[in-house]
Design a protein around this nucleic acid. Structure first.
Lengths: 243, 243
DNA sequence: CGGTTTAGGATTGTATACAATCAATCGAAA
DNA sequence: TTTCGATTGATTGTATACAATCCTAAACCG
C-alpha cells in the first residue's frame, strides 16, 4: 500500500507531533516504541530519525539513540529567521528572472483579492497565492541549492502553520493583517527590478508571519529570557575556557 | 570496532568520492554494491543515503533507489553562495557578542602570521586560525539553528577543500592570496562593532576561497553556460505552461 | 560507609531474510 | 510491423534476528 513512502510519512507525523507539543524536548525517541505506535517495523523509523536529525529537530547520539531537540518560541523564531535569510536571497536572485507577464498576472489576482470580502474562500485563495508567489520566487532564484534548502524549510513551515491552525479557535481566523498587501509590495518591487526593495518587502512579510505564528502557538507560554544580555555576563566562564 | 559510527563514515567516504569525481552525476547508487565495496551490510548504507539526500547530493526516488545529483563548477559555486549567505548573517549576529579580548587576541595572531615566512607550518597555522575564526563567529551568532546549518555546510566545504588538496600539485601550494589579511578585515570590523562591514568582509573572504576552489577543482573543465541568459529566451516554454 | 566493579536488562546498531516494486524483454494479437 | 500485456530478473523497501553498547543497580572490597 504505502510501500516506499513510510519513512516520509513518519517524518511528517513526528514533526507534526513535535510541533503540537505531544513530544517533549529532551525526550528519548525509542525506535521500538515508535514502531509499534505507528504499526511499522523499526527500519523506517530509524531512517526517519536520520532524516529528522538532518532537519535539526532530533539529535542522534552514537549507540544512545535519538532525543528530541528543544522546541519553543526561540526555536520557531530561529526557523523563521533562517527562512527569511534564504527567501530574501532568493528574491534578490529572482529579480529580473521572472517575466513581467507573470508578475502582472499575479499582481492582478492579489489586488483583486485584497479588496474582496473575507470569506473562507478568500482565506483559501490568499494561501494559494502565497504559495504560488513563494514557489515562483524559489524556482527562479537562479540557485538550485538555495531552492532546495528553501523547500526543506518550507516543510517545517507548513507543518508549523498546520499546528497553529489546529490550536487556533475559529474566532479571529481572518483577523490577520492583510497578507495580500505584503505580497503586492514584493511583486511591485520585482516588476520595477529593484532587488533590494523586493528583498526588504520579503523580509517584512516573513517577519510578520513569524510573529503571528509565535503569537498563536505560544501565547500563553512563559516568557523565556532569550534577549541575550551583554556577552560579559553569561560568557565569562566560557571565555576563560576558550582563550 | 566502529559500532555506531558506520553511517557517518560512509557518508564521508561517499562525499569524498563524489567530490573527487569517482562517482559520476546521474549514476545510480546500488546499496548492495556499495555494501560489498565498503565491507558492511546494506542497512548503514541506506541510512547514509538518506543523510546524503538531506545534504542535497543524492536524490531518493521511491522504490527506485538513490542517484547522484549533478556536480560541477555550478554546484560548487552554489554551495559557496549558500555558505556566504549563512556566514554573513552569522557575522552580523556575532557582532557585539564576542568579547574584545578574544578579538584582539585573534587579531594579534593573525597579524603575526601575515608577516611570517610561508612554510608548511605557516600554512597549517593559517588553516587553524581560519577554522577558529569561523567557529567563533558560528557559535556566537545568537541563532542555534543558523549555527547548525553552517556546520552542515562546513562538512561539505571541508571535503571540497580536501578534494582540492588531493588534486593540487605541490607547486603553488602557498601562492594563494593572503587569507590572513581577509581575516584581519573581518576581525577589525567586529572590533569596532560595524556589523555590515564585517559581513561584507566575510562575503569577500568566502567568495575568494570559492573562486580558488573552483579554479583548482575544475581548471581544465569545459566552460558551462550558466550565466543565465535573459529569461525570455529559455523560459518562454515554461511560461506558457505555468500561467 | 564509600568507591569500584561487575552482572543484568534494556536499547541501540547491524546483518540478513523476505516481500514489494520496477524495468526490460519476450511473445502474441491486431 | 507495432503495440499491448505478461513474465522474469534485478533491486529496492521492510521486517526480524542477532550482536554490540549503554545504564542501572546490587555486590564486593577498601
Amino acid at each position: 500500500m504505502d510501500h516506499g513512502t513510510r519513512r516520509q510519512n513518519i517524518v511528517e507525523k513526528l514533526l507534526s507531533e513535535l510541533f503540537q507539543g505531544l513530544i517533549k524536548p529532551g525526550e528519548r525517541l525509542r525506535v521500538e516504541r515508535l514502531a509499534e505506535r505507528y504499526g511499522v517495523s523499526v527500519t523506517p523509523i530509524r531512517e526517519a530519525l536520520v532524516e529528522l536529525a538532518g532537519l535539526g529537530v532530533t539529535e542522534l547520539q552514537a549507540n544512545r539513540g535519538a532525543v528530541m531537540c528543544a522546541f519553543g518560541p526561540r526555536q520557531v523564531r530561529e526557523i523563521c529567521q533562517l527562512r527569511r535569510i534564504l527567501e530574501c536571497e532568493a528574491t534578490r536572485g529572482a529579480c529580473g528572472r521572472i517575466a513581467p507577464f507573470e508578475l502582472s498576472t499575479l499582481k492582478a489576482e492579489l489586488t483583486k483579492l485584497a479588496g474582496a470580502r473575507r470569506t473562507i474562500r478568500w482565506s483559501a485563495e490568499t494561501r494559494r497565492l502565497d504559495s504560488q508567489l513563494h514557489e515562483l520566487i524559489t524556482e527562479r532564484c537562479g540557485n538550485e541549492r538555495l531552492a532546495y534548502e528553501i523547500r526543506r524549510y518550507a516543510v517545517l513551515f507548513r507543518l508549523l502553520r498546520d499546528a497553529r491552525h489546529n490550536k487556533r479557535t475559529a474566532r479571529d481566523n481572518y483577523s490577520q493583517m492583510d497578507e495580500n498587501a505584503e505580497h503586492v509590495a514584493i511583486v511591485d518591487a520585482l516588476i520595477v527590478g529593484d532587488a533590494e526593495r523586493a528583498a526588504a518587502a520579503m523580509a517584512y512579510h516573513v517577519n510578520q508571519s513569524a510573529a503571528a505564528l509565535i503569537q498563536d502557538l505560544f501565547e500563553n507560554h512563559e516568557i523565556e529570557a532569550d534577549r541575550t544580555p551583554a556577552f560579559l555576563q553569561t560568557r565569562t566562564s566560557t571565555l576563560a575556557a576558550t582563550i
